[in-house]
């Protein structure tokens, strides 16, 4: 696969061309003084200098609400699958790592055709981080840069972008860019400098151990006082899980039409911090205490999900939960470091 260089002016024309094509084009744009992923109406809207988006791009593979099937109340259930070809512009490396992890989850054991259809219809243009956000700690989690999963990786070289097409889909996309020239060794060396810089810049919170130590650390920390200390001010609001790029738990609900004859079944984001998440019939709650729910999230990130995806830690260090948590208790690094103070690995 090829590595090209494209001036920022040519890049803008390229994005304009994509927007006027048949594919849906989604990118990062400003919303007030924050950033979001949304439909692009013009190339001027695209802000690849963003720090972090309010919600991660997981909503394009696992939407907040997604219809799984429709039915007639007395009849058959019919699969609903409306994945449309979409170009996703500006995914940061940590969010790309998160999507790679979800790909593994939704394709393993029982293959989730709803998730995978959306994923396969995505063309992902990732981009290296230009401006670090206030709470990013991707470098601590090994996701300041990303090696795979994207179709194209952009790196800002000042007046141009390095354009690395990593897949056939990526090559086909880049082929639409007029003015692209082969990148020189010097350009590629500059990207290496960006990557080195980001290993420093994206470490606003530093984890005091290797990520591979986390499962072992958590094995020894189940009854640590930190769970209760932190959770006593937890609102159980689920902000940490709903802003998290690796959280994928969902609820399944039915919605019947006004005529009571047709309806749909949909899934919607859910979160293990929410009070009723582990409820069963008869109102028995298997995770009634806030500290139990608080601990569960941290164990999912550092131990349970890693066991399902080849040991990768399921926190990518985007820092969204840190900013979203009103009482300021969600930062996984702070918790892991606190456990490290009391634990011999």
């Amino acid at each position: 696969m090829s590595i090209k260089k494209l001036s920022k002016e040519d890049f803008k024309s390229f994005v304009s061309g994509l927007i006027s094509s048949d594919d849906k084009v989604v990118g990062v744009k400003a919303k007030g003084n924050r950033f979001v992923f949304g439909d692009l109406e013009s190339a001027d809207e695209l802000r690849l200098d963003y720090d972090v988006t309010l919600l991660p791009p997981k909503k394009y593979v696992l939407p907040q609400v997604e219809t799984l099937m429709t039915y007639e109340v007395k009849g058959e259930y019919k699969t609903e699958c409306n994945a449309e070809p979409t170009v996703l512009l500006g995914v940061h490396p940590y969010d790309m790592v998160a999507i790679n992890q979800m790909d593994a989850i939704f394709s393993q054991d029982e293959y989730d055709s709803h998730y995978m259809a959306r994923r396969e219809n995505l063309t992902i243009v990732a981009c290296d981080v230009v401006n670090a956000s206030e709470n990013v700690f991707a470098a601590s989690m090994g996701s300041a840069t990303v090696k795979d999963g994207f179709d194209v990786l952009l790196t800002d070289l000042g007046d141009s972008y390095l354009v690395d097409a990593a897949t056939e889909k990526g090559e086909a996309l880049v082929a639409k860019a007029a003015g692209a020239a082969d990148a020189t060794d010097e350009d590629i060396a500059k990207r290496k400098q960006v990557w080195q810089k980001n290993e420093e810049a994206l470490a606003k919170h530093k984890l005091n151990c290797k990520t591979s130590d986390l499962p072992g650390l958590l094995d020894k920390s189940y009854n640590h006082p930190v769970w209760e200390e932190k959770a006593k001010v937890c609102y159980s609001c689920g902000s940490c899980t709903s802003t998290c790029p690796t959280c994928y738990c969902f609820d399944v609900q039915d919605d019947v039409a006004w005529n009571l004859e047709t309806g749909k079944r949909y899934r919607a984001w859910d979160g293990c911090l929410l009070e009723k998440f582990a409820n069963v019939a008869g109102d028995h709650n298997f995770r009634q205490r806030r500290e139990d729910r608080f601990r569960h999230r941290i164990y999912r990130k550092g131990k349970y999900v890693p066991a399902k995806i080849g040991g990768q830690v399921a926190c990518v260090g985007c820092g969204r939960c840190v900013g979203a948590c009103t009482p300021g208790i969600a930062n996984p690094v702070e918790i892991y470091n606190r456990l490290l103070e009391d634990t011999n690995l």
Partner: peptide
């Protein structure tokens, strides 16, 4: 053991007890 298995296929997270 009783849990609320919403998806039944190891994805949704509701029936999880530890790992």
């Amino acid at each position: 053991l009783e849990r609320r298995m919403k998806c039944g296929v190891g994805k949704c997270g509701h029936c999880q007890m530890n790992d």
